[in-house]
C-alpha cells in the first residue's frame, strides 16, 4: 500500500500531537507533586526594599581594621587566596582614593586621603550593567536590590566583568579548592570557569544575620569602644541607620556619573555619626 504525501502529513501531524499530549500528561502528573509542595522564607530573615551599605573610612584606622573585615568575608564564603594578582579572587578589597574615585583626585589632596585605603565591594547597583549583559541570567537583581549570582547558571563568558565598571567581579581561572585555607563547610566553593563577587551575604540575611563584614566591623568597634566603619541597612526606610548617617554626613559613591546608582556609600569626613 502506498500513501500519498497528503496522507503522510496527516498521520505525522496526528502522531506528533498525540506524542506531545502524552509526554505533557506525564510531566503534569509528576510536576503536580512538586508544585503542591510548600516553601517559604525563614520568618527570621532580614528583609528590606533596598539594601545598602555605608563605608566610613575614617573609622578604619589600622591595617588590622581592614584585614579583620576582609578576612571575615573571605573566610565564610570560601574565597581562595591564589597569591598572584592575575588570578586574584576578591569579594571585598582595598583600593587607593585615586583608583576608587577616578576624576576626583588632585595633586593637593590631604596626605590622609591620598594614602588612605578604601574598602571596595560590589555596589549592588540599582541599574546594574552586569545584569543587563549576562546572557543566562546567572546574575540578576533581587527585589531587595541585591545583585545575586546563581553559580548554577554561570557559563563563564565574563560579559559581566566587561560590563561592571567597578572591577567587582573575579573569574576562576583555576579550581579554587586547593587555595582555600580553611573551608567553611556550610557554604559552597566555586569551580573553575565561573565568575564570583560579593552577594551582600544573602545566605546570612536569609537566616536573620547581618553581612559578615559588617558583623566583624561591629565586633571590632565594640571591643575598641568606637563606632563601626561599616553600616548596613534599608535605604528605603527613612529611619534606618544608613539613612540617618547619609542625611547627616557628606557622602560620595563610586563613579556615580555612569548612572549605575551604586548602593554603597562612602563617608570621608571625620566626625562621629550618632
Amino acid at each position: 500500500m502506498s500513501i500519498n504525501r497528503r496522507q503522510f502529513i496527516k498521520i505525522a501531524g496526528i502522531s506528533t500531537i498525540m506524542g506531545l499530549g502524552g509526554t505533557s500528561a506525564v510531566d503534569l502528573l509528576q510536576r503536580n507533586w512538586l508544585e503542591a509542595a510548600q516553601y517559604s522564607p525563614d520568618p527570621k530573615a532580614l528583609t528590606a526594599k533596598r539594601w545598602a551599605m555605608v563605608v566610613d573610612v575614617s573609622k578604619l584606622k589600622t591595617e588590622d581594621d581592614y584585614k579583620n573585615i576582609m578576612d571575615a568575608c573571605h573566610r565564610v564564603h570560601n574565597v581562595p587566596e591564589l597569591g598572584n594578582p592575575k588570578d586574584e579572587i576578591k569579594w571585598i578589597w582595598k583600593e587607593t582614593y585615586e583608583h576608587a574615585f577616578p576624576g576626583q583626585e588632585h595633586e593637593y589632596l590631604t596626605e590622609g586621603i591620598k594614602h588612605k585605603p578604601f574598602l571596595m565591594l560590589c555596589n549592588h547597583c540599582d541599574n546594574p550593567p552586569c545584569v543587563r549583559v549576562c546572557p543566562t541570567k546567572a546574575t540578576f537583581k533581587r527585589k531587595d536590590g541585591i545583585v545575586m549570582m546563581d553559580m548554577h547558571r554561570c557559563i563563564g563568558c565574563r560579559f559581566c566583568m566587561a560590563g561592571c565598571p567597578f572591577g567587582a567581579r573575579s573569574f576562576n581561572w583555576k579550581d579554587p579548592r586547593p587555595f582555600i585555607k580553611e573551608e567553611n563547610k556550610e557554604f559552597p566553593t566555586r569551580m573553575k570557569g565561573v565568575v564570583e563577587k560579593c552577594t551582600f551575604c544573602y545566605e546570612r540575611l536569609a537566616k536573620g544575620l547581618i553581612p559578615a563584614c559588617v558583623e566583624a566591623s561591629q565586633e571590632a568597634a565594640k571591643k575598641a569602644g568606637t563606632k563601626p566603619g561599616l553600616v548596613f541597612g534599608d535605604l528605603s526606610d527613612p529611619n534606618s541607620e544608613v539613612r540617618r548617617i547619609l542625611s547627616s554626613h557628606f557622602s560620595i559613591r563610586r563613579k556615580s556619573e555612569l548612572g549605575t546608582q551604586p548602593s554603597v556609600y562612602y563617608i570621608i569626613g571625620g566626625n562621629d555619626h550618632a
Binding site: Q30, L34, A37, S40, P41, R142
Partner: peptide, 28 residues
C-alpha cells in the same frame, strides 16, 4: 518519591533558594 524524584526536587530547591529567596521546605 525520593528515589525517583530527588533530582527534580533538588533542582527546584536550588531555584527556590538561590533565585526566589526561600529557605524552608514544608514537606507533605
Amino acid at each position: 518519591f525520593m528515589k525517583t524524584e530527588h533530582m527534580k526536587m533538588l533542582n527546584d530547591w536550588r531555584d527556590l533558594v538561590v533565585r526566589e529567596g526561600n529557605l524552608i521546605y514544608v514537606a507533605s
